[in-house]
């Protein structure tokens, strides 16, 4: 499973990081630091919750199992 983030449109709500700081690392100014994350096995649920938490709706989960 992969997460893609439209990094340029991040406005620093940091709601994803409130779900998981490891999956959704922030930079020092509080914006998302990455535009793509490989989700480690077992953390799919956490990744989906983090994506859903984004008020800007710029986080997309690409589920290759389906």
């Amino acid at each position: 499973m992969k997460i893609r983030i439209d990094k340029a449109r991040c406005v620093g709500n940091a709601r994803c990081a409130a779900i998981s700081e490891t999956l959704f690392p922030l930079d020092d100014e509080g914006y998302i630091a990455v535009s793509e994350v490989d989700v480690p096995p077992g953390q799919e649920q956490l990744a989906r919750r983090g994506a859903r938490a984004c008020p800007e709706r710029i986080i997309v989960v690409e589920d290759d199992s389906q």
């Binding site: 620093g12 940091a14 990081a17 922030l26 100014e29 509080g30 914006y31």
Partner: peptide, 11 residues
């Protein structure tokens, strides 16, 4: 806004 962003970051 940039200078304020760090001071008001979650960290």
């Amino acid at each position: 806004r940039a200078p304020l962003q760090r001071a008001f970051s979650p960290k």
